Simulated assay, not measured.
Amino acid sequence: MSSDTRTVAYGEEEGEFYYHRIHRTKPFERNNHYHGTYEIYYLVSGERHYFIKEKLYSIRAGDLILINKFDVHKTSGQGDPEHERIVINFSDSFLGKGHPLLASGLLGMFSQDTPLLRLTIPEQDTVLQILNKMADEITERSDSYEYMLRVLLMELLIKTHRLIRSASLPAPASMNPLHQKITDVVKHIHAHHAEKITLQQLSETFFISPFYLSRIFKEITGFTIINYLNLTRIREAQRLLTDTDLKIVDIAEAIGFESLTHFDRTFKKIMKMTASKYRKFNSIS
């Protein structure tokens, strides 16, 4: 790919393969979101904040981020809004489960404790070279370019997996007390999502007024507290629907919903399908 910074876009974020490169000069903030695909985020230039699950990271040019399926994340500005980034999303099916090129355990790196890799200049060159080749394939659309994208993605995954052993793993950004308070609230929700959680209870637990807690939680995470709680519960429901044969009514109760009707309505709103349909498409049996 040439040295210009034109936008390159291919596929859909929730599809089998998605590639998007863009250079922005104006402030941009993506609301907290998640998807059922793996994500690779590479910052070509500039600086950004990245909120992933319950931690805030300060990222700079040359940093590589690995985001697992269904991990909530949000990117926001840090200083000068100008930045350029490349995002890749891909599904399990894109490489093919059991594919001879898919090394055993390779995708496990997306679930490591620290999603941020701080690459050296030579490592940045290696990664960017592959990402640029992908952009060229997408732009030129030569014969069998879709297969070449699979080959290039596999090369990127293998080289990234090797880099994990040598790359610097920066700690999460030093958070101000307000960010730390919300991080603690998020951790509490993750740990106690199966229990009854109310705004008043969180207010008393973390010594902050309900109104202020509600406002700053939405400001920092992009979610209302109830929406984040429901999202956390539905993510656990996805796991139970896929990995167990528990009845749906029992899953609803186990993750904290007081009625099957409320669970059904919430699951369909978030997942755009019913729980039974999700199980049918994703069950391991």
Rank of each mutant, 00 (worst) to 15 (best):
F223I: 01
K218T: 10
H193D: 07
I182W: 00
A194E: 15
P210W: 04
A167I: 00
H179K: 08
I208S: 04
S203A: 11
K196S: 14
Y212K: 12
H179T: 10
D184I: 02
S166K: 14
K159Q: 15
P170D: 08
P210K: 11
H193T: 03
I220A: 01
R215C: 06
G222M: 01
A191C: 08
L163V: 03
K218A: 11
H192T: 13
H192Q: 13
E219H: 12
G222K: 02
S214Q: 07
I182R: 03
L156E: 08
G222P: 03
I216K: 08
F206D: 10
L199C: 09
H192M: 12
H179A: 10
L178W: 05
H192S: 13
E155K: 13
S209Q: 06
V185K: 00
T205N: 12
F207A: 14
H190T: 12
K187T: 12
H188L: 10
L199D: 10
E219V: 04
L156C: 07
A194S: 15
I182K: 01
T221M: 02
N176F: 01
I189S: 08
I164M: 15
V186H: 01
Q200P: 03
I197H: 06
A173W: 00
I158Y: 14
F211A: 15
S168P: 06
I220E: 00
I197K: 04
F217H: 01
I208L: 10
I220D: 00
T221Q: 00
K159I: 15
L157K: 06
H192I: 07
I197C: 05
L199P: 09
H192G: 09
I182S: 03
T198N: 07
H193R: 11
H179G: 08
H161W: 13
P210R: 08
L163Q: 09
H192D: 13
A173F: 00
I208Y: 05
P170T: 01
